[in-house]
Computed example of a mutant assay.
Amino acid sequence: MVNTLWLVRKLGDFSSDLVQEDDVVVLIQDGVLKFPSKKNWYACKEDTLARGLKLPEDKLLTYSQIAELVVKAKKVVVW
């Protein structure tokens, strides 16, 4: 179970100090440009490909997978 799902559009505005162990962070839009390799952090596959970036496949989530997380999460925060 995901406690909080963080959807982050720009990393510069986001404080990772807010993220708890049972949270999931998904970088979307321009947030994918600075992908940190942290546990429970993922990037939107479509946004990553649109920007010509290459990230490990196990760190990419499709829009459908992100939508499933939105439904399962206790709380969703868009940053």
Rank of each mutant, 00 (worst) to 15 (best):
K34D: 15
L18V: 13
R9P: 00
K34G: 07
Q29G: 04
L7F: 06
A73G: 07
L53C: 08
S16Q: 08
T48G: 04
F35H: 11
V25C: 09
V19W: 00
L11I: 13
I28P: 07
E21W: 04
Q65I: 02
A67K: 07
T62V: 06
Q65L: 06
Q65T: 01
E21H: 10
D58R: 08
A73L: 02
N40E: 08
T62A: 05
L55I: 13
L55K: 04
S37F: 13
L33D: 14
L7Y: 03
D22L: 00
F35A: 09
L5W: 02
S16C: 05
V26K: 03
D23T: 03
L33G: 06
L53N: 05
V70W: 05
I28M: 00
L61D: 08
M1G: 09
V78T: 15
S15L: 07
L18S: 11
V77P: 00
V70R: 08
L11S: 12
T4S: 11
D22K: 00
C44A: 04
L60Q: 01
V19N: 02
S15E: 11
L7V: 01
S37E: 14
T4P: 11
T48Q: 02
P56G: 12
T62W: 08
V26A: 03
V71Q: 09
P56I: 07
G31M: 03
P56H: 12
R9M: 09
K74P: 06
G31E: 01
N3L: 10
K54F: 06
G52W: 07
V71P: 03
D13P: 04
V70D: 06
L53S: 06
Q29F: 07
V24P: 01
A50P: 04
K59S: 13
V8M: 02
S64M: 08
V8K: 00
E46P: 12
T62E: 12
Q65V: 01
W41A: 05
L60C: 07
V32P: 04
K54I: 09
K75L: 10
K54R: 13
S15A: 10
L5N: 01
V8A: 00
N3D: 14
E68I: 13
T4N: 11
E57K: 11
V71Y: 05
K10V: 14
L53G: 08
Q29K: 13
L7D: 02
S64Y: 09
C44T: 03
A50Y: 10
N3K: 15
D17Y: 09
T4V: 08
E57I: 15
K38G: 15
D17H: 13
L49S: 09
K74C: 07
V8Y: 02
D13V: 07
L69Q: 09
V19D: 02
V76D: 01
I28R: 00
L55P: 10
Q65K: 14
K59C: 12
